[in-house]
């Protein structure tokens, strides 16, 4: 499903505190079936951008469209709920939203709210459980009794159970050990590929960006400073320095070697495999 932002402005409100224009005139287009990384420093407006995508935050000006649905400053509840059904949102530490008595009830919560039938719900619960790599014996357990990694998976299952066309992920691997994090991200990428969904991933880790994403969108002070392919961005060292973003491990090591020898590699290495190949070809000599 295609997503469009048309000169969108938004404020952030928490209790009595209001910050103006945390999203400051953004226009962008996320094509169907793309996997896009959103990066930027804390407070750059990433979470507000995500919230705009499913009407948790309404624009003060401009409009956001998800497929044929459009959200503007007078977003109607009916439209908003339609949008929310389309856009699955995995917040940071999603296990903090678990509340039901059993895992089954918790996963079924979303589908129930969005009006799926009983039979559909049973099927959706089973299916999403499988997709996140859990087995049905977990269904009758209390979500609070699970380990951290399991809770995270259950929470994600609760989101994908509503069959969203767009999946928005806010650091889904945060706080997990490296293996756990990799498993979750790999699983989300598989889900993206098999369901033709449009996926948006917020992350601070450039290794995730190069491993799982096709495109990258950099935010700064409420604006999108660049939106291009992952390789395009990392090929342009000047731009990376200007934007103040980190490097994926292979590229960081490549730059260290280049600094040492004073000789620049012919290609930019984004993965371990690429760096290995370049080194075997003697790029550092």
């Amino acid at each position: 499903m295609q997503i469009n932002f048309n000169r969108v402005y938004a404020d952030y409100q928490l209790g009595p505190i209001r910050s103006k224009n945390v999203v400051d005139g953004i226009s962008l287009e996320l094509a169907k079936n793309t996997f896009t990384a959103v990066v930027g420093h804390t407070g750059a407006g990433k979470s507000s951008l995500l919230k705009l995508l499913n009407g948790l935050l309404l624009p003060t000006d401009g409009e956001v469209s998800v497929g044929d649905l459009t959200i503007d400053k007078n977003g109607k509840k009916k439209t908003l709920n339609k949008v929310r059904k389309r856009v699955g949102m995995v917040f940071q530490f999603p296990e903090r939203q678990l509340f039901a008595e059993t895992v089954e009830q918790d996963i079924a919560f979303g589908p129930k709210n969005f009006g799926f039938s009983k039979e559909e719900i049973t099927q959706l619960v089973d299916q999403s459980l499988k997709q996140v790599g859990l087995t049905p014996d977990i269904l009758p357990k209390s979500p609070f009794s699970l380990s951290g990694g399991q809770k995270r998976r259950v929470a994600i299952a609760g989101i994908i159970a509503t069959k969203p066309d767009v999946l928005v992920l806010d650091e889904p691997g945060a706080g997990l050990d490296p293996e756990g994090k990799q498993e979750i991200l790999a699983m989300l990428r598989t889900l993206h590929d098999t369901h033709d969904s449009t996926t948006i991933l917020v992350t601070h880790d450039m290794n995730d960006v190069v491993t799982y994403c096709d495109n990258v969108l950099v935010m700064e002070k409420g604006q999108v400073t660049t939106h291009q392919t992952v390789r395009g961005l990392f090929s342009n060292q000047n731009e990376i320095d200007r934007l103040g973003i980190g490097l994926p491990e292979p590229l960081r090591l490549q730059r260290l070697i280049e600094e040492h020898t004073g000789r620049v590699f012919p290609h930019v290495c984004l993965t371990q495999q690429e760096l290995k190949d370049q080194l075997l070809e003697g790029a550092h000599l």
Binding site: P178, E179, E249, P250, L253, Q272, L275, K276, L279, L280
Partner: peptide, 18 residues
């Protein structure tokens, strides 16, 4: 035990005959 990135790369390179 999964090693740090540099060591992973070194092992890879050794395996490839460097």
């Amino acid at each position: 035990l999964k090693p740090p990135f540099a060591e992973q790369l070194r092992r890879d390179l050794v395996d490839a005959g460097m």
